[in-house]
């Protein structure tokens, strides 16, 4: 095993970019519990008419099979870059005022928060759409992998057709 930086165990990384095109973007990959309130506070904006927050949590079962816990692994520098791209698209396409985008890594128990996305826009409809776009795109492009632990084994999610 090589101990290169990109393979080092996930540690807390805070990556906050302020004042991009007069807006706010906050991207974080954390190995500690996500603070939903911090995400909501971050996107609070005087021009906003609505803040929409998506909170993704660990479900107790997959296709009827009991899940014991999950583990998330990320290729951290690239995951942050890809999350930032999504946040910038949200800013552009939906004229968002602020985006906070936090993803957890490490071992998570049932019910714990895996991802939180908060978006504020002048009118609520755009914030709903932007939030949905952000989570859907994360699942397509961001290099983060989820392993589900069952009573009889463990599986990397979505790896096989």
């Amino acid at each position: 095993m090589d101990g290169g930086d990109s393979c080092a165990p996930a540690k807390q990384v805070s990556f906050t970019i302020k004042k991009i095109k007069n807006t706010l973007i906050d991207i974080q990959i954390l190995d500690t519990p996500i603070d939903n309130e911090a995400c909501i506070d971050f996107v609070n904006h005087a021009e906003a008419g609505g803040n929409v927050v998506f909170v993704g949590t660990v479900r107790a079962q997959t296709k009827g099979k009991k899940v014991l816990k999950l583990e998330f692994e990320s290729y951290q520098p690239m995951a942050i870059k890809e999350m930032r791209k999504i946040a910038e698209q949200v800013m552009e396409k939906w004229n968002a005022l602020a985006v906070s985008f936090h993803h957890r890594v490490g071992v998570l128990d049932i019910g714990e928060v895996a991802v939180t996305i908060a978006v504020s826009t002048p009118h609520r409809k755009a914030a709903f759409e932007a939030c949905e776009y952000a989570i859907d795109t994360l699942k397509e492009t961001v290099p983060i992998w989820k392993k589900e632990f069952f009573e009889d084994g463990e599986v990397w999610v979505a790896a096989h057709p």
Partner: peptide, 12 residues
């Protein structure tokens, strides 16, 4: 070059 092998992602 450092090449990263990226299997299907499954974040969120």
């Amino acid at each position: 070059d450092e090449v990263i092998v990226i299997p299907p992602v499954s974040g969120g």
